[in-house]
Design a protein around this nucleic acid. Structure first.
Lengths: 142, 142
DNA sequence: ACATCATGTAATGCCTAAAGTTACACGACC
DNA sequence: GGTCGTGTAACTTTAGGCATTACATGATGT
């Protein structure tokens, strides 16, 4: 399977929205991402429901970020996507009768749980403002 | 995408093979996994090439483990699958011109790299014998 | 009013990789 | 030589992200 790129796309979009007061249309965002306006609306829906962005219709409408970049963590964005699976691997049978398979499952589950906790912990400390700061550094190097 | 269950399946199979001297046929393994003999041969190919198992043809043939369970780590098994992607998420554009996207990519990549190192490190310390020991504990509880 | 612009959403098809299936070649043992 | 097993290639199925089309809804401008 291909990889899920929604998280990085949302972060990308949010940071651009934070750089301007004017609302951005789904089409503008789609052009930015090399994607499609409908896809944009789909992945933005969770952010809207979470109150991180607002969408206005009609002339001059579009998407606007409603919080400061220091108020939004990567975890917030991840959750607004519905907390999709982080890992590409797992076990097939969730409740096996075979004892061996049970142990294997537990071993795998432990590794996944530990890694998941670590990543989500990291996501919870990562704020959009930090990525913003890194962008500024990157601009100075140019 | 659905999840990749090959790693847990291989571990399951290897532990069963370690419990008997008689070779196991692909069909027997497939029945055990609720899968297909051809699929079994496919996922076992890497283990065979890595020298962890041997396959014999004809009457009385089948698969046999060629190493002790304390000599095989989960990392060995993972590698014999060709080290498939561990994570279900990533970024779409590997070399974006947009500075914001570059920073987002780096942020995501850092998280993935850190977590990957941690998991592979964990895999390298996990030996089949340890899972075996846990199976024995599980049997006593029954 | 009404045309235009924008979001909201359903429905459909595309793409990719694991998994399942079919078919057949090769080799070993009875 | 028949049977049992692995080794592979080729095709189908499946699931989810992604792209596209179509249409409804609402807000703005003339």
């Amino acid at each position: 399977m291909r990889q899920d790129t929604r998280l990085s796309r949302l972060l990308h979009v949010l940071l651009h929205m934070a750089q301007t007061d004017a609302p951005m249309t789904s089409q503008q965002i789609a052009d930015m991402l090399g994607s499609n306006a409908v896809v944009v609306r789909r992945i933005m829906a969770g952010l809207r429901d979470g109150g991180y962005v607002e969408a206005e219709r009609g002339h001059g409408g579009g998407w606007r970020i409603t919080r400061g970049t220091e108020e939004i963590t990567v975890l917030d964005v991840y959750r607004s996507l519905g907390s999709p699976d982080l890992f590409a691997f797992g076990f097939s049978n969730p409740r096996p009768s075979c004892l061996v398979e049970q142990s294997v499952n537990e071993t795998i589950a432990e590794s996944i749980d530990t890694a998941t906790s670590a990543i989500l912990e990291k996501f919870s400390t990562l704020r959009l403002s930090q990525i913003e700061a890194e962008v500024r550094e990157r601009m100075q190097k140019t």
